[in-house]
Design a protein around this nucleic acid. Structure first.
Lengths: 129, 129
DNA sequence: TTCATATACTTGACTGATTCAAGATATCGC
DNA sequence: GCGATATCTTGAATCAGTCAAGTATATGAA
């Protein structure tokens, strides 16, 4: 995957990419932890740099619900959305409904040229509700 | 408005509420600046506290697009959404389209009890595009 | 395989938004 | 006007994330 995106293949990057695949919606700190289980000496900066590189290459997607730190996931390019628990902050995926496209055209875009509509659903997860 | 929400009427709160009305989508720092034009000696903490109190009371709404600091607006309870400029971070309001409601029912909520669907449109504002 | 070079990583300091905590002050019901 | 209590001031602390300088490593060419 890294080579496919013209990214150099380094051990930190491989570990970060695996960690994001293994722990969807994990925050940076959890990813650092997961990476260090494999490569104990990786710096936090290397993880931040890798996440930025992977995000820029489109191999991972960064999400950041209001009030949360950045989280990363490996499902990209499928325009899915997220539910966030107001109580514990847990995040789950929500697939697009078929009927969505027309609704996500803004009625009045205020002159903006819109290229993406991101939906965040808010509520309570099963264990908190 | 403050009394209507059973909040004590203090000069900092009045100034914060006016500032949010006068500067929609302003971040906390701008609000502090606006408040201090009227009351130069207000502490930043008082502004943070006021914004929290006003948000809890529903008199203002807090929004925080990914990668941005918290912003506040006085339009509440009308379920409108936002367009955010990827370049300058500027925020504008987008009214609900009539057809939206059915689309914003998640196809699979993963067991979450959802109470709100928040849409953020991303693109470029007129001056950046 | 070796080498050169650009890219990535390590280390350690720093920033900036936000929060915490303790004591002083002001609001509001009586 | 007075007392109780919420709010504000002051100043320090936290935490995610960034910056910067120097070292190490991946990769393409010799």
């Amino acid at each position: 995957m890294l080579r496919g995106s013209a990214l150099r293949v380094t051990r930190p990057r491989v570990a970060v990419l695996s960690a994001v695949h293994a722990h969807p919606h994990a925050d940076t700190d959890s990813i650092i932890g997961a990476v260090r289980r494999e490569l104990p000496k990786v710096s936090h900066q290397a993880v931040y740099d890798s996440l930025h590189a992977l995000t820029a290459a489109g191999l991972v997607r960064r999400i950041q619900p209001a009030g949360s730190v950045a989280r990363y996931e490996s499902r990209t390019g499928d325009n899915h959305h997220h539910v966030v628990c107001r109580s514990c902050g847990d995040v789950a995926d929500v697939d697009c409904t078929v009927g969505e496209a027309p609704c996500l055209t803004a009625s009045d875009d205020g002159g903006f040229s819109i290229d993406e509509a991101e939906i965040t659903y808010w509520g309570l997860c099963p264990s908190c509700s």
